[in-house]
Amino acid sequence: MHEWDFAATLADMDLLLLGLWNTIQVFVLALAFGVPLGLGLALGRMSRTPVLSQLCSFVIEFFRTTPPLVQLFWFFFALPILISVQMTPFVASVLTFSIQSSAFFAEIFRGGINSIDKGQWEAAKAIGMTRKASLRRIILPQAVKRMIPAFAERSIELLKTTTLISTVSYADLMFQANELASKTFRPLEVYTVVAVMYFFLILVFSQITILLEYRLAKSGEGTMR
């Protein structure tokens, strides 16, 4: 029977915390770029211009159907050759996950916007609002409220997917864990600790979104699912 010994792992906890910090950086940046990009893609897909709509649909479906790891490899290994730029693991990671998650966010936006009753568009139109103003003032505020559960779920997926960047040697939590495991020869303890860290990171994040949902539900109409 194996004797558990966390001493070596905990002694190098700062390595893991650094990894955690790097993970959070990529996660936050990918969200910051991915959400607006997702909104753009969603509006593009719903546009009445067929070319724009088809192009956005293609981008969305392409990034939803190809595995994130393949995308990451493509952006890290292939893109730099194609356009001859220097690609760091960090840039490749942020680029990949911004675009990848934007495709999923786009579908959430689209679903949210489509779920709003047609009468809301009509009422806004009838008081003279432009399409843009209706979207911004009337439709989106209601849609976003409904999107929060799906949005949270997708963000958690993103957070978990960031582990892939360890494969292009970006020093995220997963990568640091691999390093530490080979340094200490204690993979069981290291990977268990890392699993627990991810578990709590995600737990904290999902609790925050539940709180947010609750707060929003109190103002005006409740969140409808």
Partner: peptide, 14 residues
């Protein structure tokens, strides 16, 4: 021109 609808279409978030 003002318009009033069958289903009111008030803005529920306001």
């Amino acid at each position: 021109i003002g318009m009033v609808f069958q289903h009111f279409n008030l803005f529920p978030h306001k």
